[in-house]
Design a protein around this nucleic acid. Structure first.
Lengths: 225, 225
DNA sequence: ATTGCTATTTTGACTAGTCAAAGTAACAAT
DNA sequence: ATTGTTACTTTGACTAGTCAAAATAGCAAT
């Protein structure tokens, strides 16, 4: 069995590979994502390469192999199902479940995981809107626009929050921007790097474009109803 | 924070100390309970002693200190609440939850634990009838008779199963001896080391006295109704 | 093409936990 | 009182994961 350290490296590698567009991930990013010094990342990645979980190019970077990716997706499935479970069944605050899930994702057996999946009704996304990989390791990540680039004036439904930090999530919650709510971009000020958003129930919010880019949206109710 | 290895040693030490009547636990028992060679137990116990979690007497044995016991009870609380949760909320087979709980008991935060406790309605015993320590580290273990020594002919309620091995638990289940059911000892044959038990719904079962001693009972419905 | 910057790798050391195997203590028993 | 047996401890070695700090590679820029 993979240790939880190995699982964490693979998970982080998967996530970095997503944001980086699929290519090789620089060792510096790995080290930063894992919160270790660069030397540690090097030696760990070499060990992962020896296990056939990653492809490692000295001074070039690292990429998951097929089997490394499968394992990463399995970890991600556990993480996201646990997050949803903590919110839905145990009633925890959605801004706190990320860290809890980080601990639990390594301790959950397949048996327990599939029971959780069943109790939740085989959900497809976690509380932040992140897609939940299937048990077979498939994941569907629809390309979505964000509040930084979606059309202006037409109502959109919040679909996913890319920043899982408690501060950002609490900001999102305070301003009624949680996944599922409907919002409309009122206008953008490129010079000021600001986005003005009308929220479903009443208010308006201003966001920097960096923050706006972390809130993904979709055309409202494409099939619901 | 204590590592999960430390938590396991303390938990095992607590359990051994219970069965052993409260005194010092021999190092051999520690090693056996932890599934390690004796030398490993020695060095680990010395480390625990350095942390003030146990009192260690070379060639004499080991005993939990107050703080070691508190930590052990906290681990036990997590273990038993998780067991009950897995059965009640996730619908797992009660004969399997012990091993699952062994993995989860080290990954559950206090926050999650107290939510689980609340969802379960602040239970006092796990599916095997083992008492659940309180958050403050109190535990009430009533002295109970077993099927090996309770009065003959008077109905008794199964209160607790001391052997958590899947085989024994499955035997218990198959024969309707789960905690809560009412049974009556029909007779004992000391020479044959056998106990004959009448089970609530119909049947009768024969048990060896060692097995009978692992099934604790109480006088039926002492306060329930 | 030498200099300098930055990212990366190497090396050596450390901690936690473990095993194998050799050494020692305690106690019984003759 | 020497011998055995058993339980226990010690010693040395190993793995996983980490850091600090020194060495090196690659690249840019003049």
């Amino acid at each position: 069995m993979a240790t939880s350290t190995v699982e964490n490296y693979l998970k982080q590698l998967y996530l970095e590979q997503r944001v980086g567009g699929g290519g090789m991930v620089a060792m510096g990013r790995v080290a930063a994502a894992m919160g270790v010094v660069p030397g540690t990342a090097t030696s760990m990645v070499k060990a992962l390469a020896d296990s056939g979980l990653v492809e490692y190019e000295p001074r070039g970077g690292v990429a998951l192999t097929r089997s490394g990716e499968q394992l990463a997706l399995h970890v991600l499935r556990r993480h996201r199902l646990v997050e949803l479970f903590l919110v839905k069944v145990l009633g925890l605050d959605w801004s706190l479940v990320h860290d809890e899930a980080d601990a639990l994702e390594h301790a959950i057996s397949d048996q327990v995981l599939e029971r959780i999946d069943a109790v939740l009704g085989h959900p497809t996304a976690d509380p932040h809107g992140d897609p939940i990989p299937t048990a077979k390791g498939h994941v569907h990540e629809p390309r979505r626009m964000s509040l930084a680039d979606c059309p202006i004036g037409s109502p959109q439904q919040v679909a996913r929050i890319l920043d899982q930090g408690p501060e950002f999530l609490q900001f999102v919650e305070r301003n009624g921007l949680k996944p599922g709510t409907t919002v409309t971009v009122a206008r953008r000020e490129p010079a000021a790097e600001a986005v003005r958003v009308r929220v479903a129930r009443g208010g308006e919010v201003s966001l920097g474009v960096a923050a706006a880019a972390k809130i993904l949206v979709e055309s409202p109710a494409p099939k619901t109803q």
